[in-house]
Simulated assay, not measured.
Amino acid sequence: MNGRAGRIRIIGGSLRNSRLDVPDLPGLRPTPERVRETLFNWLAPTIAGVQALDLCAGTGALGIEALSRGAAGVQFVERDAAAARALRENLARLKAPGGAVAATDAASYLHGAPRTFGLVFMDPPFALELWAPLARQLEQGGWLTPSAQIYVESPRNTLPALPANWQAWREGAAGDVRFALYRRAGDLPLS
Rank of each mutant, 00 (worst) to 15 (best):
L87I: 00
L87K: 01
L87S: 09
R88E: 05
R88W: 06
R88F: 03
E89Q: 14
E89T: 15
E89V: 13
E89F: 05
N90F: 06
N90W: 02
L91D: 02
L91I: 13
L91H: 05
L91Q: 13
A92L: 13
A92K: 15
A92T: 13
A92W: 05
R93G: 06
R93Y: 01
R93W: 07
L94I: 10
K95H: 10
K95N: 02
K95M: 06
A96K: 08
A96W: 00
A96D: 04
A96T: 05
P97L: 10
P97I: 12
P97V: 11
P97F: 14
P97Y: 10
G98E: 04
G99S: 03
G99T: 04
A102K: 14
A102Y: 10
A102C: 12
A103C: 15
A103D: 07
A103F: 03
D105N: 13
A107S: 12
S108M: 03
S108E: 08
S108L: 09
Y109R: 01
Y109P: 01
Y109Q: 08
Y109V: 00
L110M: 12
L110Y: 07
H111N: 15
H111M: 15
G112D: 10
A113W: 06
A113I: 02
A113H: 11
A113N: 07
P114I: 01
P114D: 01
R115N: 05
R115P: 00
R115C: 02
R115M: 08
R115K: 15
T116F: 02
T116S: 06
F117G: 09
F117K: 00
F117M: 04
G118H: 00
L119C: 07
F121P: 00
D123G: 07
D123E: 09
P124G: 03
P124S: 05
P125T: 01
P125V: 06
F126E: 08
F126K: 12
F126P: 00
F126Q: 05
A127S: 10
A127M: 06
A127I: 07
A127Q: 14
E129F: 07
L130V: 01
